Amino acid sequence: MSGSWKSPEEFEALFRKHYRYLCIVALRITKNEEDARDIVQYAFSDIWLKRDTLNIIGDIGAYLYRIVKNKSLDMVNTRKIIPVELTPSIEDTTADEVYDEVIHNQRIAALWERIDTLPAMCRKIFVMCKIEGRKYQEIADQLGISVKTVGNHMGKAWKAVREGYW
Score class of each variant (00 low, 15 high):
64 L>P: 02
55 N>P: 01
75 M>G: 01
48 W>S: 13
71 K>H: 03
69 K>G: 02
62 A>C: 07
59 D>K: 13
24 I>F: 02
54 L>C: 08
26 A>D: 09
78 T>A: 11
36 A>E: 13
20 R>A: 07
36 A>M: 11
54 L>D: 03
26 A>W: 01
39 I>A: 09
32 N>T: 02
69 K>C: 05
41 Q>Y: 01
45 S>C: 07
21 Y>W: 05
33 E>Y: 10
48 W>C: 12
63 Y>T: 13
77 N>P: 00
23 C>F: 00
43 A>H: 03
43 A>F: 05
58 G>M: 11
40 V>R: 02
41 Q>D: 13
66 R>V: 14
33 E>M: 15
25 V>D: 05
29 I>P: 02
63 Y>C: 14
43 A>L: 03
44 F>I: 09
28 R>I: 08
41 Q>T: 14
59 D>P: 00
50 K>W: 03
44 F>R: 05
56 I>P: 00
35 D>E: 15
57 I>D: 14
72 S>G: 07
58 G>Y: 04
53 T>D: 15
39 I>C: 06
53 T>W: 00
61 G>A: 11
65 Y>V: 09
24 I>D: 03
39 I>D: 08
78 T>Y: 09
65 Y>R: 07
44 F>S: 10
65 Y>E: 13
76 V>G: 02
46 D>G: 08
70 N>A: 12
61 G>H: 02
44 F>A: 10
46 D>E: 15
26 A>L: 08
51 R>P: 01
62 A>E: 14
46 D>V: 12
35 D>G: 06
40 V>W: 01
70 N>F: 06
54 L>F: 02
30 T>S: 12
51 R>H: 07
56 I>C: 12
59 D>Y: 06
23 C>N: 08
20 R>F: 05
39 I>H: 00
30 T>Q: 07
69 K>E: 10
69 K>H: 09
20 R>I: 05
20 R>C: 04
55 N>Y: 09
39 I>L: 11
77 N>I: 10
55 N>K: 11
56 I>S: 10
38 D>R: 02
45 S>R: 08
40 V>H: 06
70 N>D: 14
79 R>G: 07
25 V>S: 03
71 K>R: 15
35 D>L: 13
53 T>Q: 10
25 V>L: 11
43 A>K: 01
52 D>N: 11
62 A>Q: 10
45 S>K: 04
26 A>T: 02
27 L>T: 00
35 D>N: 13
36 A>W: 00
27 L>Q: 03
49 L>E: 15
73 L>M: 15
31 K>V: 13
31 K>T: 14
48 W>Y: 13
68 V>A: 10
23 C>G: 08
